[in-house]
Design a protein around this nucleic acid. Structure first.
Lengths: 334, 334
DNA sequence: TTGTATGCGTTATCAT
DNA sequence: ATGATAACGCATACAA
């Protein structure tokens, strides 16, 4: 069943069938309807592979993330897929895990699939660690446009959408301090650009308030409820005073709530807690978690829109910023 | 840059290049290395569209789900993608939402993309409601194999992987009753096959214990923390006695925990709670949630393995069952 | 072991 | 407005 069968049935040439198929201008109404009914009768569907070969595109975008089961990334992927589809594009999902070699491998795999562009979702693809080489992304961008969601890398054909993490953490920390906090603890989960920006926001707020953070106030921690709880418990047991926790992921903040519960520390009176990403987790704890909304939906839809612009040949800014909001619930005094 | 360029550079025919490319048997080592170095020099990558046209496959599987940002589905999609990739297949993600027409539309879209098979993730695609017509799936299966994860539908070329939800709910309910529960409330979120199976398990356990559930003990509820909380609060306010909550989704169980907290109902002494899916949410509440582990990973990997078997032309059982486990935490006495 | 020739099903160019 | 025909780049049956 192909375009020849249709053309035969309709008594026209394949060129005409193709024209009808593609909504091409110059076809007489009479011919069009002949073709259309032939298509319907034969239940014909164009072969997308042949079309792909000719046009050299399958209207497909690769979505890469380290782990699509992570709440935050799952949301980002979801919104990206929805937006892509609204533009008539398919989404090829590719989860790499956190291994550097796999990231490289899968990125080149995606290139070989000749997708039209790639969206790298999440901050895990660009490292600020000088030992890690980010050029694999720059090289890939020579073949097709690459959009970074929550990551920044300068390079030809690379476009970034970032949440203003530094400001978000800065202002939240400042508010904590304003409300009387003396010793906030900051949990971070990654040394990515985004992770470092958040950390910088915390440092700056302390510094601007004339505070110098103790080493113990800055803790790199796996995204894991009990890891955060354990760390705070350790601090507590060695009588290290702290009166606020700000975490770069809601799960860690949940750990802080659980720590407080276990040691009968009053939240928010004795301990204020702020999470990040404003995920479902924030609604699960008692008291419910104040959390920074990093605007996943907006990030993803912006990323897709940018990509569409680039594919249309329009020029777009290389760096695009989205503003985060603090969603106030019950773990903060303000 | 195509296979002709390579053949020219290597001084062989395109057939030989193709043979090398596909690891075909009969190529002399000398020729092979000539070709290989030509490929490397030219930095040649086969055009996957042309290959797809000839072979009539792009080694791609469509993954459909209603909402890939839902924790449970996100996990299922993740494991499916990982397993597919391990078999050398790509995953085309397609989120339909819960609208029936969209499900139909997107399923036929996927057919037109000529994927090699489709995995329908989640129970939302097959309805037990006689007003809803499931034949769109049966028709689609005439074109390519369809795997249902957590759904059951009888039809040619349709294969199902299901969690034994009925048993899981039955035995959990039985345990609750055994521990002294007199009036358990059951929350369900869907009338899908899976949803009905769970409900049946609850009904059967009550019936086998000589109990007849009040209408109010069975509540269809949106997957939403506060919806569940509100319902329980309403029961509480009208002095309807209940001493256990079993929910078909963890989020509803979280709502029950929050209800208990708000009304100082002691968990598990006065109210036992069991969730479903054993998601992160179960670790967030205080006390932590006992939850039925519906084995997402196993469901997804089994689904992919089945599909691979079918694509290899092997015959596989149409219904495959996975056993759920109750993960005991702190909201149950046992 | 290697090469030749053909088909896969479109789209697009150029005639008419 | 419509038709003939040439790409697109590969795999493979058949020949040598």
């Amino acid at each position: 069943m192909n375009i020849y069968d249709v053309s035969k049935k309709a008594g026209v040439s394949i060129a005409t069938v193709s024209r009808v198929l593609n909504g091409n201008s110059n076809v007489s109404d009479k011919t069009r309807s002949k073709v259309l009914s032939a298509i319907k009768e034969l239940d014909y569907t164009p072969n997308i592979f042949a079309r792909g070969l000719g046009l050299n595109t399958m209207k497909t975008i690769g979505i890469m993330c380290t782990d699509s089961s992570d709440t935050y990334l799952a949301n980002a992927v979801y919104y990206a897929e929805q937006t892509l589809r609204s533009f008539g594009y398919d989404a090829l999902l590719c989860c790499t895990g956190n291994d550097y070699d796999n990231k490289r491998k899968y990125l080149s795999l995606l290139l070989s699939k000749r997708v039209d562009g790639i969206i790298l979702v999440g901050s895990q693809f660009v490292s600020s660690d000088p030992a890690i080489d980010n050029t694999y992304i720059i090289e890939a961008a020579s073949e097709m446009p690459i959009i970074l969601v929550n990551g920044y890398l300068d390079g030809e054909n690379i476009y970034c959408v970032m949440c203003d993490d530094r400001s978000a953490v800065y202002s939240s920390t400042a508010k904590l301090i304003e409300s009387g906090v003396k010793k906030p603890v900051y949990f971070y989960t990654s040394t990515s650009t985004s992770g470092m920006n958040k950390l910088q926001g915390f440092r700056d707020a302390l510094s601007d308030a004339g505070m110098t953070p103790d080493k113990k106030q800055l803790h790199l921690c796996t995204k894991n409820i009990s890891k955060a709880k354990d760390y705070l418990t350790a601090l507590y047991n060695e009588a290290f005073y702290f009166d606020a926790v700000l975490a770069s992921d809601d799960s860690l903040a949940v750990g802080a709530v659980k720590f407080a519960y276990e040691h009968s520390v009053k939240v928010p009176d004795e301990l204020q807690i702020i999470g990040y990403n404003n995920s479902v987790l924030a609604n699960c704890t008692e008291p419910e978690l104040s959390s920074i909304d990093s605007k996943v939906e907006q990030l993803s839809t912006t990323a897709v829109s940018l990509l569409m612009q680039v594919l249309s040949g329009n020029s777009v800014p290389k760096l695009n910023t989205v503003t985060a909001d603090l969603i106030k619930r019950k773990t903060t005094k303000f």
